[in-house]
Design a binder for these strands. Structure first.
Lengths: 349, 349
DNA sequence: GTCAGTTGCTCAATCGATGTTGCAATCCTT
DNA sequence: AAGGATTGCAACATCGATTGAGCAACTGAC
């Protein structure tokens, strides 16, 4: 008799159905046909299992089969519209394939990324999606060493299959739009567009920054170094730099390209202090979309990254068994101010 | 010799260090002192393990010990500021305790909730946090049956330890503030406050709706049934109902209490169509906080739920080994319009 | 010198599921 | 009717870590 309060095993089912554990296993995991178990026997076993509330022990199966049914995702943060949208799609897609999603966030700490990956390896994950990695090559190396199927999302690795949104194209669109729309301002310090936020050491930021510089140079003749304030992804830092910039140039610049939602949130905490009139002489754009962000007091151009497509393509790459480094680009979308982009709202509450 | 591309086991380390597998196990899992292994032996084994890049197989350990080191969280959605904030804190807190967080989202489908829980049980999770459950009692029953430690967050179960934010207090604050601040409007249809969104069958919504009704009755004498439009959590539904309401009463109501961020996102997709002047005769409040939401074209009162405290208290309840139903309340905070609440921005980008 | 007690380790069973091998019983085939 | 093929199932080793039991070797006591 099995202990109360603990789940029945195939041995319990075997005893109760008068079959052997291996027959029970076959009946329950679908391999009974190959193993020449009679239909009626299999059915009898399934009935007993259902009656007893049997459910498989994935640890035991995983140990035996060296596959866990777990699929990992590593990302910098959950509390971010872009990444939480990725994890939403990832979860849905994983369950659809009968896999159990395990998501860990690493706060953009390279050490935490490695620790998390090693933790996931301890659980024998079958594959891993690495989104927004700070140190992609280190993670890529580990995956190759242990032969783990993996895909990078958003921030690519040179050594591995990767799916990213087309940062250069998106940033170019946004920068051009800002520069075209920018009002003429007398003060030369404020007359030029500025970029705030992002980490130039990271792929995505560096592409966006380069595209910004290019667009500025092309449309305005040249781009000064002080126009790029790549102060990272921490909202508090962005707030400081926003304040410093406003102090330095005597108000809001005519054009402001904000690199990512967290930087925007940070900047916002300073922008809220300004009188509404301050925004009249300024065009703001943000690389990343937020439905509320699109509807602030002042108009904001936003760039939407197709997180659904990113996840889909990443799964597709894994399904194909891609191991060689490929870089897939997903085009982003420029969203005009005060626009609700269909399909970007929370799926549910 | 072990297969290349696969991780070394304690048997490999045993062979290489000239000790037995059981000694290796003891040396590596910390039990070597109890098992009277010499310090030097343990150290030698640890050195070999480090050199070989050994890391434990949690499936094997979990199978033997009947504990997995996994801790589950079930929530309706990732792409929601409140829930993604919960999962962020949950992840941090789980790792801090040496546990691996497994988060699944269920799209508010009772069947998916049960399926997810059973899936997690297959992986032998040690405990589970259930946030925003649609059918708490069904999940509670399963947990009790299999003896799984669990805590409900946000939506409580009558049968289990639960931590919720004080919905009644928060909704009362918000409703009162809206009613106090509401402008006088001639049209009687628009002169009263309305509540939009939420599912009256769910605990949180029902408490908020009750508190809204009470506040309205207390301050305005009575509350009509048409003032409560509990149309659920799907943005699209909220958008429809927003439009219908505006059509029905000839414009925005003087006071609008929006129940939850997804409903607000939905409503927003209709509000964006209105001219700015439409908001002059209206006060809007939302139960849930979003930094961008706080800074829209029009002023919005918001209610912030302390997701960090919710997670902390939930872990504390589990640590205490709480099994009997207790209901802990965490007070929410009323946030005035155009306010950045410290500590609510993304932790990181 | 003998015996009890301690130290330091190894042996072997175990967790639950899988899958290869093997073994009766039945079914054809000629 | 004898031999081989097929059917239907059970036995057993296995995955990797844990842990109770056990066994030498050494220590100290008398």
């Amino acid at each position: 008799m099995r202990r109360t309060g603990s789940k029945p095993t195939i041995y319990d089912i075997a005893r109760l159905s008068g079959a052997s554990p291996s027959t029970v296993s076959a009946a329950l995991n679908g391999s009974w046909k190959d193993r020449r178990i009679r239909e009626e026997t299999a059915q009898r076993i399934r009935d007993v299992a259902a009656a007893e509330g049997y459910s498989i022990n994935m640890q035991a199966r995983g140990l035996r089969k060296a596959r866990s049914g777990l699929v990992g995702m590593i990302l910098p943060a959950h509390d971010n519209r872009f990444f939480s949208s990725l994890s939403q799609h990832f979860t849905t897609e994983a369950w659809r394939r009968g896999l159990c999603p395990v998501i860990v966030s690493t706060r953009r700490e390279p050490q935490e990324e490695v620790r998390s990956l090693e933790s996931l390896l301890s659980y024998a994950i079958d594959s891993v999606f690495i989104a927004g990695a700070t140190d992609p090559e280190a993670l890529s190396r580990i995956c190759h060493q242990v032969g783990l199927a993996h895909v990078f999302i958003d921030l690519p690795s040179m050594q591995s299959p990767s799916v990213v949104s087309d940062n250069a194209a998106g940033a170019a669109m946004l920068a051009r739009k800002i520069i075209e729309t920018m009002p003429a301002v007398d003060d030369p310090r404020r007359a030029k567009p500025y970029l705030l936020g992002g980490d130039p050491r990271l792929y995505a930021s560096s592409r966006r920054i380069a595209a910004f510089r290019e667009a500025v140079t092309e449309m305005r003749g040249h781009c000064d170094d002080d126009q790029v304030i790549a102060c990272g992804y921490v909202p508090a830092r962005a707030a400081e730099e926003m304040e410093r910039l406003i102090d330095r140039i005597g108000g809001l610049p005519a054009g402001l390209f904000i690199n990512s939602i967290p930087a925007f949130e940070g900047a916002l905490s300073h922008l809220v202090l300004l009188p509404p009139a301050a925004f009249a002489q300024s065009v703001i754009g943000c690389y990343d979309y937020d439905p509320f962000g699109a509807f602030l007091q002042f108009p904001v151009y936003m760039v939407w990254q197709d997180s659904h497509a990113l996840v889909q393509r990443a799964f597709a790459l894994l399904d194909q068994g891609a191991k060689t480094p490929v870089l897939e680009m997903i085009p982003p979308v420029l969203v005009p101010p005060r626009t609700i982009l269909p399909g970007t709202l929370s799926e549910q509450g």
